[in-house]
Design a protein around this nucleic acid. Structure first.
Length: 554
RNA sequence: UGGGGCAUCGCCAAGCGGUAAGGCACCGGAUUUUGAUUCCGGCAUUCCCAGGUUCGAUCCCUGGUGCCCCAGCCA
């Protein structure tokens, strides 16, 4: 897609970048997406990396993928690979620029020494508790550490001992020597390095001290020549620190820009909570189709283009925004409407017998794969005297605006004949179990003269229909903002997954994993990638169709 | 009565002193063998509030109000 055909709505980041280019502050645009490999990516991350890769593309620059792997106890290679796959799935390419903060550990260590020598960093030997107590509060300044004025030589040798593994975890920390009375808490001598005798997924046991985010992120950006370091709002308070390190080190200065993270209704986005949903088995895993993770959405059948459309549509700003889940679902429908082949499937079957159609006759009706795209061809639909329709398409005592089937009413069978309901058969409990209908055999592919039949319903031939497993997914939470509840788990939607069966047209048995179809008048369904067997597809409902009739009723 | 941010239609979001873009939602109407899709039309005399500057303010100034973030040896 070229910039010309994409309607690019302006935003404050674009404006800042343009100004930086015009002023000559930077002569190119380099951005980066910097996840920590400690979990799976979710839709919020997609907003971030769509922004970063999109900006780079629009300005003719590049976007790096950098893993901020500075905390070995939480990170794993499994996540590195999963994150790469997710970014690629959305169609973005970092080219040669796959980087890791851990690639810079040597450089970072050298820079730490440089700051010690300049009297800008010191080894503190207070406990974590003492440090917290002496940091002060939001309204009171902190107190200098008793170790704050150690000599450069002592700091140097202590720091080297830290690096050599002479101390256990938590005994010492390297701190930037800034200002314990700063109104910005991030500037009250922030930690630069901590002792962590932990195995790192890439550097192994080479290190037992690891840089903090604040001492690694900006420098990583600088090393890579990142011009615009785009992050979320909570890092706004870190920007002065980001700039302090860059300035003291005298290295290339990127511009940090913050934007508001995505909030989606009826879902939670925090990694901790998503992890708990998985661990406590409220969902089947990170890729459960109800999860807001990209792996979950992929399995749910959300097309990557829909997620990109969503990210563009919601825009980017600095005000905390809440996007309704329906916006995402509309992007999914929009995309799937274009690409999904149409099929017929009945979820709640009600038997229909055509009394004037030969009992042993079978017709092969032609049905388009996509009515708006005739070039997509047709498939054959077996038709016979015994059919199933959906129970919701029949009402014994229909209200005014109902134009489906009822006693003595006519309805069009999708891709087939017009039928009329002559008799309603009930069981002892009075429940409708069968409809006896007559077909107007002169209505295949044409409308009858003199009367209009407005209702159209879908169906399957009883003798030919195949039974498949179907999973109907709904929003994971029933509260708009689950975090508002005392415990977000109480907001879980008990009906978020409904497992059932459907009767589908025979061709659907050969559907391949990952393929998505529109079950006409029902919704979009995708073949589950994990639980389907050859010839035995399991269908996940990706999203329902818009239903103005349902809306009218309520 | 610490610091940093944000306030424009139901939800997002342009706008950068010259008289309120756009998208989604919504409401009409048309087409339709999916009550889907598509297509037309409608949808902020007003920009959190109150003052001020100006010929002119959503944009500048002053003072309020509301909301978000920060006290990890997490990122």
């Amino acid at each position: 897609m070229s910039t010309a055909e994409r309607p690019v709505s302006s935003n404050f980041i674009r404006t800042m970048i343009s100004e930086d280019l015009e002023s000559g502050r930077y002569d190119q645009v380099v951005t980066r997406f910097p996840p920590e490999p400690n979990g799976y990516l979710h839709i919020g991350h997609a907003k971030s990396f769509s922004l970063n890769f999109g900006l780079a593309e629009d300005f003719g620059g590049r976007c790096h993928l950098r893993f901020d792997d500075t905390n070995p106890v939480k990170e794993d290679d499994e996540f590195v690979e999963a994150i790469k796959a997710d970014v690629r799935w959305l169609g973005f390419d970092w080219g040669e620029h796959l980087h890791f903060a851990s690639d810079y550990f040597d450089q970072l260590y050298a820079w730490a020494i440089q700051l010690i020598k300049a009297g800008k960093a010191y080894v503190d030997s207070q406990s974590a508790d003492e440090m917290r107590e002496n940091r002060g509060t939001l309204t009171q300044p902190g107190i200098d550490s008793p170790y704050r004025n150690r000599s450069v030589e002592e700091n140097l040798s202590l720091f080297e001992q830290m690096k050599n593994g002479d101390f256990p975890d938590g005994t010492h920390v390297l701190r930037a020597r800034i200002d314990m009375a700063s109104p910005n808490i991030n500037l009250r001598d922030p930690a630069m390095y901590r002792i962590l005798h932990a195995h790192h997924h890439r550097t192994g046991d080479t290190w037992c001290i690891y840089p903090m985010y604040d001492f690694a992120h900006g420098q990583g950006d600088s090393i890579e020549g990142v011009t615009h370091s785009i992050c979320t709002l909570e890092f706004e308070d870190h920007r002065p620190l980001y700039e302090w390190f860059i300035r003291e080190l005298g290295i290339f200065a990127p511009q940090q820009i913050e934007f508001a993270r995505l909030n989606l209704s009826y879902t939670v986005m925090s990694k901790r909570k998503l992890l708990q949903l998985v661990n406590d088995q409220h969902v089947s895993g990170w890729d459960d189709p109800r999860m807001p993770t990209l792996v979950g959405m992929r399995r749910r059948g959300y097309p990557p283009q829909a997620i990109r459309t969503f990210c563009e549509r919601i825009g980017v700003g600095k005000g905390a925004s809440w996007i309704d889940l329906s916006v995402l679902e509309d992007c999914v429908r929009e995309q799937l409407n274009e690409t999904a082949f149409r099929r017929q499937a009945v979820l709640n079957p009600l038997k229909v017998t055509l009394t004037n159609y030969p009992a042993d006759k079978v017709e092969e009706l032609d049905a388009p794969n996509h009515p708006q795209q005739p070039e997509q061809g047709t498939r054959k639909l077996p038709f016979s005297a015994e059919l199933y329709i959906d129970r919701a398409d029949f009402m014994e005592d229909p209200p005014k605006k109902f134009f489906r089937l009822g006693p003595d009413r006519e309805v069009r069978l999708r891709n087939g004949y017009i039928i009329k309901c002559d008799e309603v058969v009930k069981d002892e409990q009075g429940e409708v179990i069968e409809l006896k209908c007559s077909a107007d055999l002169d209505t295949l592919g044409k409308n009858p003269v003199g009367r209009k039949v407005k209702g159209i319903i879908h169906w399957v031939s009883a003798a030919h229909a195949q039974k498949v497993k179907v999973r109907l997914y709904d929003r994971l939470f029933s509260e708009e903002n689950p975090d508002k509840a005392d415990n977000y788990l109480t907001a879980l939607n008990p009906a978020s997954l409904q497992e059932t069966e459907a009767l589908v047209e025979p061709g659907l048995l050969e559907a391949k994993s990952g393929e998505t179809f529109q079950f006409e008048r029902v919704g979009y369904f995708t073949v589950d990638s994990s639980d389907s067997q050859p010839g035995q597809p399991v269908f996940n409902r990706t999203v329902t169709l818009r239903d103005t009739w349902a809306k009218m009723k309520s």
